[in-house]
């Protein structure tokens, strides 16, 4: 059993403070959805947790199994068991998926004898066309194909925790279902803990969250169970963006200070 804790995270990008104190704790096997409107700081949150250059952390901590990780470079966070599924996966010309995974395995001291077969099996499972496996990473792939390869990598690298940065953006309904189901399966098969950052509810129809958090202006303004996503679907973000604590769900008492805007 592993734990990912985010404590009082305050961060800025290009001199502008985007995250204003985020607290979140995820256990292995749990699915947490962080939902927020445009500009809430969703992508900044995922970037900061994973250590993307260009972001400055002013306060707070990210702990994996009780060990502080913010001082580590990205690749060491990944090796420790944190994984980011990107909203816009980068194209890397001239490097194919299996070549990249071989390096990722090697860097973890994992044997690569069965890698090609594992990639083929996982590609079939996620319905990623095997004819595309030889292509350069993310080059000439559709939005859905990119998210399928992102999910394929997640499945093979088998981290302790995955941050899904808008997994549902830019992909069709079939790809969304396949990717979400694969992540859901990983929470059972490898006890993956998931932090699913999303704008829309539709991802959560397949990937069932245990906890839902509403992110507004760099703070989590409400936390609750799956019913919170339903409430959001019904009432929209407006109900959460007024800066008033009136509709605050009972379970979020520890976030009271966040409402004193």
């Amino acid at each position: 059993m592993s734990t990912l804790e985010i404590k009082g995270l305050v961060a800025s990008v290009a001199g502008k403070q985007i995250l204003n104190g985020i607290d979140l704790t995820i256990q292995s096997g749990e699915v947490h959805a962080v939902m927020g409107p445009n500009g809430a700081g969703k992508s900044t949150f995922s970037a900061v947790v994973m250590g993307k250059p260009g972001y400055e952390v002013h306060a707070g901590q990210v702990l994996l199994d009780g060990v502080a990780r913010l001082a580590l470079p990205t690749w060491q966070r990944a090796q420790a068991g944190m994984h980011l599924v990107m909203q816009y996966p980068s194209e890397v010309p001239g490097v194919d998926l299996t070549e990249m995974l071989a390096e990722a395995y090697g860097a973890r001291g994992r044997a690569t004898d069965t890698l090609a077969a594992d990639v083929a099996a996982e590609a079939e499972r996620i319905h990623f066309p095997s004819a595309l496996l030889d292509r350069s990473l993310n080059v000439d792939l559709s939005g859905g194909e990119k998210k399928r390869t992102e999910t394929l990598q997640l499945a093979l690298l088998a981290p302790k925790f995955a941050i899904l940065d808008e997994l549902d953006s830019g992909l069709d309904i079939d790809a969304l279902r396949d990717c979400a189901r694969r992540v859901e399966a990983a929470t059972h098969e490898t006890n993956l803990g998931v932090l699913a950052i999303t704008h829309y509810n539709r991802l959560l129809e397949e990937l069932k969250p245990d906890h839902v958090h509403i992110l507004v202006k760099g703070r989590i303004v409400a936390s609750g169970g799956p019913e919170l996503a339903d409430q959001l679907e019904r009432d929209g973000y407006e109900a959460f963006t007024g800066g008033e604590a009136a509709d605050e769900p009972a379970a979020t008492s520890s976030y009271d200070d966040l409402f004193a805007l």
Binding site: P53, W75, H83, V92, M100, E103, A104, A107, R108
Partner: peptide, 17 residues
């Protein structure tokens, strides 16, 4: 960043790129 986020060390990522 993409390659390093997969756990690949910087010098290896640079070589791949």
């Amino acid at each position: 960043f993409y390659l390093e986020s997969r756990g690949i060390p910087p010098e290896t990522a640079e070589r791949l790129v």
